[in-house]
Write a protein that binds this DNA or RNA. Structure first.
Lengths: 146, 146
DNA sequence: TGCCATTCGTCAGTTTGTCTGACGAAAAGG
DNA sequence: CCTTTTCGTCAGACAAACTGACGAATGGCA
């Protein structure tokens, strides 16, 4: 760090958010390897997060994640190869594929949830519970307006 | 949005941070095109942010941005091609290149700074000044500990 | 009932941004 | 001077996104 005299005072909000995201991501995805899931990358998170228990369509997942269906197909194929999701034909629509978590995938989700809570607790320890709660509140408020 | 009953209540902190970063980035980089800088992409921001007035070495920039020097070289070459930075031989070290902002690059930086402030003001209007201030305070506190 | 527009997912190709490894040239320090 | 380190480049790989074109299935409507 070059300029400790006025720490992050002039950093842009975007840079601050990106750094904080990086801080959390390192803790979640970095530790996933140690928990038996070394092949899960960050992009996989955006897929898994949106899969409903009954299964979700590819296009639906793409929309939820805000990406093209081709990009989502690439990620889903990856997760299927790794055994975390499976795809079935949709009984109600012959064109569609239903993407569903496997048992292994549900284990992964639980682990990720645990690591995420752990990271948030570490954040609270680092900056104070009050600040951490304020951070989450502000972020949730923003998310609700989208 | 599918489940408005308990909004973002169970979202992971990582997802919330990523979404907020996306929200800000859209406003800054999206509007840059309208301000006469249509070719500036997000990755360029991480380069520009760290260039000191006297110029910075490539390796130094790479370290500051947390990436390999080859990756930084690719981004710097891009910015040089666009006329925002120029590289000079370092007078003190025959191996090194000095990367410096051009006048055009300084204009870009000012524009980006303005858009960033604008985005932060919009955030404050959207979630409330109090929450927005709390958000920045928490993020700066985290950044200071890194 | 049959046609046509729409939607679902895939194929093929491209771009962006990152990485690793190997290397030549220059500097630094005995 | 010679050796080790550092600076930047070359070459190649990969991840993660994109666009455009397309065949197959669905669904609305005349």
């Amino acid at each position: 760090m070059r300029d400790a005299s006025h720490p992050a005072a002039h950093s842009s909000l975007g840079a601050l958010l990106r750094d904080a995201y990086e801080w959390v991501s390192e803790r979640v995805y970095g530790r996933l390897a140690g928990q038996g899931f070394p092949e899960i990358r960050r992009a996989h998170g955006g897929v898994l997060r949106h899969i409903r228990p009954e299964g979700s369509r590819l296009t639906e997942l793409a929309q939820a994640a805000g990406m093209a269906k081709q990009s989502m197909a690439y990620l889903v194929e990856d997760l299927a190869r790794l055994g975390h999701v499976e795809t079935l034909p949709d009984p109600e629509d012959g064109r569609a594929r239903r993407v569903r978590l496997t048992a292994k995938g549900r284990g992964l989700m639980e682990t990720m949830l645990g690591l995420s809570r752990e990271a948030e607790a570490e954040l609270a320890a680092a900056i104070g519970a009050r600040e951490a709660a304020g951070l989450r509140r502000a972020l949730e408020k923003l998310a609700a307006l989208r």
